[in-house]
């Protein structure tokens, strides 16, 4: 009964949504828009939003990766929120699993190849992760993928050392400092420039590593934060106390 109802509802949703999106007459270019009167300056914006991003990102942010420019600069506040979602989830997981951790659960010993392989692979993982988040403004990637790659290194550690956890305290400190750094970079924008998260560093030379103002700094903070947060989550889900 329950399954039939569920099937009927989901098929209905499927039919309605598919019909709606297939017949939708949304424009397939990004040139619409531009009639908006800005409430602060009372000026017309004369171009559509994506067009303006593509045209001005080099001038405004110095990042060659437009997606990064949007994520970190134009819509940087969203990203602060996004970091906070992950932070909230990590905190929530720690809160829920604090008391429920089990000690000394028997695990299978990992085999030799995994043990030795991890030692060989781990430095590379860390380097790749770091590379990804440092070069976020130049190449695809950024703080989140970089942090996730580093966290995969943590996962490898957890797999190898079956009866040990990660240094939870250190991860927590890293996480806090990285998060505060991000918020502080934003707040300093209010001091050195005019607005929260506004760029106040020189943009540097386009397509060089040391360019794009605060973007690399933020991405480094995010990289550390995401790496330590995901590590903390993995540690908590594994459920072993810090040694």
């Amino acid at each position: 009964m329950r399954k039939i109802v569920a099937a009927i509802i989901s098929i209905t949703v499927f039919v309605i949504l598919t019909y709606f999106f297939i017949t939708s007459s949304a424009p397939i270019n990004y040139t619409t828009g531009g009639q908006y009167i800005n409430p602060i300056t009372h000026e017309h914006s004369n171009q559509s939003v994506p067009q303006q991003y593509l045209k001005d990102s080099k001038k405004d942010t110095g990042a060659s990766n437009v997606v990064t420019a949007i994520v970190v600069e134009y819509r940087g506040f969203d990203t602060l929120g996004e970091v906070t979602v992950l932070f909230t989830a990590a905190t929530g997981i720690a809160l829920l699993l604090d008391e429920l951790k089990r000690r000394n659960v028997p695990h299978d010993e990992p085999n030799f190849i995994v043990k030795v392989g991890s030692i060989v692979v781990l430095p590379f993982i860390v380097v790749v992760g770091t590379y990804i988040f440092i070069h976020g403004h130049l190449t695809p990637g950024g703080g989140f993928p970089g942090g996730a790659v580093i966290a995969s290194g943590f996962l490898l550690l957890l797999l190898v050392h079956t009866n040990r956890g990660l240094p939870e305290r250190k991860l927590s400190v890293t996480e806090s400092i990285a998060g505060m750094t991000y918020a502080l970079i934003g707040l300093l924008g209010l001091v050195f420039a005019h607005e929260f998260l506004e760029n106040y560093l020189p943009l540097g030379t386009f397509t060089y590593l040391f360019s794009a103002g605060i973007i690399p700094l933020i991405y480094i903070a995010i990289g550390f934060k995401v790496g330590s947060e995901l590590g903390g989550i993995l540690h908590n889900l594994k459920g072993v106390h810090e040694e």
């Binding site: 939003v49 994506p50 994520v71 969203d78 996004e82 997981i93 429920l100 889900l237």
Partner: peptide, 28 residues
């Protein structure tokens, strides 16, 4: 259009967070 890509980047991270928390609740 770069905007949807930026949005999806955010949406993915949010999805991961929710999934992780859901797993923790499942464990509890």
């Amino acid at each position: 259009d770069p905007v949807p890509q930026a949005l999806v980047l955010t949406a993915i991270v949010i999805g991961v967070s929710v999934t992780a928390l859901a797993l923790a609740v499942a464990m509890g």
